[in-house]
Amino acid sequence: MAVAETPISVTDHPGVEHEHEEAPARRGRWRRSLGVAVPGGMVALIVAACFLGPVLFDLPSPVGGNILESYLPAFSPGHLLGTDPNGNDILSRLLYGGRASLFIALAVNVLGLVVGGTLGALSGYLGGVVDTVIMRVLDVLIAFPSLVLTLAVAQALGPSMRNTIFALAFFSIPAFARVARSAVLRLREMPFMAAAQLCGTPAWRVLFKHLAPNTAPQLITFGMLGMGIVIIIEGALSFLGLGIPDPAPSWGNMVATGQLSLSATPMLVVWPSLALLVTVLSFNLLGENLRARWSGR
């Protein structure tokens, strides 16, 4: 007697079904990796151009140009992007200005992360009176319009790179503190935190061994977003003459200088504005994609 053969569907095979389930997950991981790699590569390229470009391409000094060579057009001999009203090489000023902006943004975010992150972690972990005092003081700073107060502080201290860093870092500390406190409050309810407390682990060891590594992703992500914000504010301060003073190059004061002859030479404004746009966009995309990648784990 013939035995009826039951057709086997491809979807009935457990291995094939498992592969179908893993395919979307692999595509999602690939997209997240690409989302981090592309803006990360742009940031690395910008940093390398600003810090290594002037040396590798033997660019002239960004200051002390020859006034007889002012307003040279792009692709002039020895001046790829031309010169400004003072005869300074635009490409050189663009890269040295980017170096200053990146250094200020990094310094501001490192100060905010270290000081604000420490205050926020202490506030969230210790709680009680310590939490109340720290957060009320920081709330007072957050309540004021940060940009207005930054302008006031910069005006009071005077235009310089050091004063710009202090003025911006002063207002980045509360933001980092709130991010750190929020992350610590979530971690404090985790089982490993209860186990560490039951074992009598000292508070400083809990902060550095357990809390710091677990709050680092949130703080780093916030720092990447903060890099773009600081670069914009520093550009605004330099544009108003309260950041990096002339003749030192900065994207902000390059825009301020270029607007004086905007109708005749618009590229004097376009180049630093484009550099600001690409840099801030790269840091924002990197921060957003890092946040999405780490939150998906």
Rank of each mutant, 00 (worst) to 15 (best):
M1N: 01
A2V: 08
V3I: 03
V3E: 08
V3R: 13
T6V: 08
S9E: 10
H13S: 14
E17T: 15
E22N: 12
G28D: 08
R29D: 08
G41M: 14
G41E: 06
V47F: 09
C50R: 06
F51K: 00
F51E: 01
F51W: 13
L52F: 12
V55Y: 11
L56F: 08
D58S: 15
P62H: 10
N66D: 08
N66I: 07
E69Y: 05
P73V: 07
A74Y: 04
H79F: 12
G82N: 03
G82K: 03
T83N: 11
N88P: 06
I90L: 11
S92E: 01
Y96T: 12
G97H: 02
G97Q: 03
G98N: 11
R99Q: 12
A100M: 12
S101N: 00
I104A: 03
A105T: 07
A105Q: 15
L106M: 11
V114K: 11
A121T: 07
A121E: 06
S123M: 05
G124R: 00
Y125S: 06
V129N: 09
R136C: 08
V137A: 12
L138I: 14
D139K: 15
A143Q: 07
L147W: 02
L149Y: 00
V153D: 02
L157K: 00
R162G: 10
T164V: 15
F166M: 11
A167P: 00
A169G: 05
I173P: 02
V179T: 09
R181P: 03
A183E: 15
A183P: 02
M190R: 14
M193F: 12
A195H: 01
P202E: 10
P202K: 07
A203L: 10
V206N: 06
L207D: 02
L207C: 11
F208I: 15
H210N: 10
A212C: 12
P213M: 13
P217I: 11
T221S: 05
F222Y: 06
G226F: 01
I231V: 13
I231S: 03
L237E: 05
S238A: 15
L240D: 06
L240Y: 04
L242E: 09
I244T: 13
P247Q: 13
V255A: 05
A264H: 03
P266W: 06
M267K: 01
V270K: 07
W271K: 15
W271Q: 08
L274Q: 13
L276T: 00
V280G: 11
L281G: 00
F283M: 07
G287I: 04
N289G: 03
L290R: 11
W294V: 10
S295Q: 14
R297C: 03
